[in-house]
Write a protein that binds this DNA or RNA. Sequence first.
DNA 1: CTGTAGATCTTCT
DNA 2: GAAGATCTACAGG
Length: 196
Amino acid sequence: MQTEPFGLPVQDSRVLVPEWFQRDTTEVAKELVGCLLCRQLETGEIVRARITETEAYLGIADAACHTFGGRKTPRTQVMYGDGGHFYVYQTYGMHFLLNVITQPAGVPEGVLLRAAMAEGQPARWLAGPALLTRGLCVDKSFYGKRVSPESALWIEQDGCTPPVIARPRIGIDYAGEAREWPLRFCWEKHPSLSRP
DNA sequence: CTGTAGATCTTCT
DNA sequence: GAAGATCTACAGG
């Protein structure tokens, strides 16, 4: 039931378990739009943000993915593990980007979380992958942790089913034909999108 | 509104 | 040694 605009307030929700992520990456990316990214801060306070934008990265066949061609480096190592864990890396020397690993072990794919909106905050507070991690105090210490409340960072689903549209991904012009692939999933017309 | 530059540093060649 | 799954500020039209 989608009565309030832009998915607020939160309804009865359930925590997604790691196994939920161990399947088709594009499906996971699509279904994560509308879910709640939850973070328990050092203070104990819990922040819930409605995910509004994701991107799927399809592993060895995807020139935009860090594991393209089966590349295995210290940075990408966790991508080869079980889905339902986090892949966090730093880019441009100053930004952390948060991914959820998908698929069973051996299939190095994942979903980049690009934008979200938290209740009681400006719509553009988390309107970008680096803004999202900065706002929720997510850094490389989450690398390899389970997507679970015991990690202080998890995802809940509460039956919110927004209108989702697919677009080419952002910032991957180097990726040859893969740059056209419609793997960016957006909540249609949502004010918190990183870009329209 | 558009374009461009600078910040800043890990990762891989 | 170069580039990057970004963001912000500022200049110009």
